[in-house]
Design a binder for these strands. Sequence first.
DNA 1: ATATTTTTTTAGACTAATCTAAATTTTTAT
DNA 2: ATAAAAATTTAGATTAGTCTAAAAAAATAT
Lengths: 218, 218
Amino acid sequence: MLSYTEENYLKAIYHLSDSGTKAVLTSEIAETMNTKAASVTDMIKKLSNKNLIAYEKYYGVKITKQGRHEALMVVRKHRLWETFLVQKLQFSWDEVHDVAEQLEHIQSSLLIEKLDEFLEFPTVDPHGHPIPDKSGKIVEVRQIPLSECSGKKKIIVRSVKHGSPSFLQYLSKIGVYIGASVSILDKVEFDGSLEIMIDSKKKVFISREAAQNLLVTE
Amino acid sequence: MLSYTEENYLKAIYHLSDSGTKAVLTSEIAETMNTKAASVTDMIKKLSNKNLIAYEKYYGVKITKQGRHEALMVVRKHRLWETFLVQKLQFSWDEVHDVAEQLEHIQSSLLIEKLDEFLEFPTVDPHGHPIPDKSGKIVEVRQIPLSECSGKKKIIVRSVKHGSPSFLQYLSKIGVYIGASVSILDKVEFDGSLEIMIDSKKKVFISREAAQNLLVTE
DNA sequence: ATATTTTTTTAGACTAATCTAAATTTTTAT
DNA sequence: ATAAAAATTTAGATTAGTCTAAAAAAATAT
């Protein structure tokens, strides 16, 4: 069984590796975990000994099949708890992250399966991120940043790339939510900002950064 | 802020001291925490330095006002989570303890207040134990062991003294639950066992130990 | 191609929580 | 009242996770 800290490292490596596809550097892990490279090296050795990652000195790590599965189970728990907090306890989507960071480490498969059932087997969390099922399977929907959309087609907001509380609060303020329908009215040459229409009733300008951080389907 | 371990020690001391009224010995703590006396001495010093307990060498510890409050907050969280697991996730009352032991350490006052509200401010948990409110207040209802009841008055089962999974499973099996109405039909001289009627429809014999572990109001 | 910079690893130390073994204090028994 | 037993504390060691400083390797820049 993995420790609290091991689970956190493994999850960080999973996310940094694009869901387990590419290698991750010691320094990247140190940055996202807010630790020093020396500490990361120590933990890398531990996870490597448990066959959760493949480690080659000085060349970073790659997550193994087993490691990917363990990481997915933590991600599953995190996202189910976030869904619970928003749907059942009336948290707003910008308040759930830190609490879910704690809840994701509760060890009880009975709990998580019952929670999943209670929530009626959701496939995405409050930020639009997919929830792995019991076996680790994810339903991936191809999404692109709003900043890369063209023309006047109907666009649906599917998820946020990075869900910082301040970005999420901003979205709420301007009326953007997961599932919202938007259309692009104009693109400003000067700074790449967009004028968009939300739900056919509200016009707003959003910056290029914001548009790059909103993932949509056309 | 208290560590996971400090919270557990404090909670154990609270329970062993009859809700903070009497002194507790090092060896008692060691026994319930499954640790050695030497480890307990170390932790006692830590909690004492934080003014959560009053410690006199060789004479055990007494919980302070502040320590009692901290312990009550952990107890509150434990019992609210148990209530959630049974009422919302359909756990049975013998399955909740170990999971609640983990959940009680989640740090978020927003979470616990919202959970309380979601459960509609319950006053007792699935084992009939009182749930402290936000400020630590407990509604104590005077209860006596079923073994000490006399005559044929109407008796209501209020709580279990010690809720081990096996005892709880046994109660379910014979049809006893919190709130059940029982009456005493006969007391066996030989071994102190009782013949009782449950909800005016089922007669069973229960041992003296079982009767001592069931708390009721007459 | 070699020197400089950057990244990574190693070595050694620290804290929290635990342990065993030894020393000390209290309790119990005669 | 004193000796034996039991409980408690102290001393010193261990493990997980972290750190700083130094050494080693890789990347980069001229």
